[in-house]
Amino acid sequence: MIAVRNVSKQFGDHPAVRDVSFTVGEGETVVLLGTSGCGKTTTLKMINRLIEPSAGQIEVDGVDVRRKPAHDLRRKIGYVIQETGLFPHYTVADNIATVPRLLGWEPDRIADRTRELLAMLKLPENSLRRYPSELSGGQRQRVGLARALAAHPSILLMDEPLGALDPITRAAIRREFRRLDELRHTTTVMVTHDIQEAFELGDRIGLMDQGRLVQIGTPDELLHRPVNAFVESFFEEQRLFLEWKSRRSD
């Protein structure tokens, strides 16, 4: 459960995020969508306190995020960024074990969990001892997800997780992600500028523009009940395709 209440962020005199409010329910996936520079990443990073808001309040599981030390908060929140987020000097196994080690898990428990994630994400067993640079882009992205999920976080934050991949791999991984129970049951906020991705993965979509959250709702609501001309025109080009998509996923 995440509640974002009237949150704003100024960088100097530049307002990056302006008075944004939304909630993400248990097990729900909210996708923040918008053109580059509209404030999606900033909003996301305020949830795990990589950025501190200038105004407003954020609660995770009913507790203000500022009540705890930032590192404690973050160890319970999975965080996925573009592939560069993997530590190049760690093997795949070490990368996946990052958060469990920070939490002081026993090596056996870490090994079990790593195997489980490997199977779930269809990564070959022998990749454990490899370094990120020895993997394909798609594999790296799966490892990134495995690392974020390793310690069973109650919340998952993903920032353009598939941004670095080619369109075909991207579509394939997207389909896999949708089928993963573990992902489906984790409260997730995902950031993307890819409209199709938002429609495929989001239970609800928040459309942002110039720091504001213009409209948040199900894909259907955004398509059929746009609150203004901006929302309507945003989806115009891909309307036919999206309507077909959203009907199919019902």
Binding site: L50, R74, I77, Y79, T84, H89, L102
Partner: peptide, 27 residues
């Protein structure tokens, strides 16, 4: 050391000291 990596490390819940010892110094 790439700021993205540092941010990822902080995002995982490492403290400043852990980021230094586990990421920055080795790299």
């Amino acid at each position: 050391v790439s700021p993205t990596l540092k941010e990822a490390a902080f995002g995982m819940g490492m403290t400043s000291r852990q980021v230094l010892m586990r990421l920055e110094i080795p790299l």
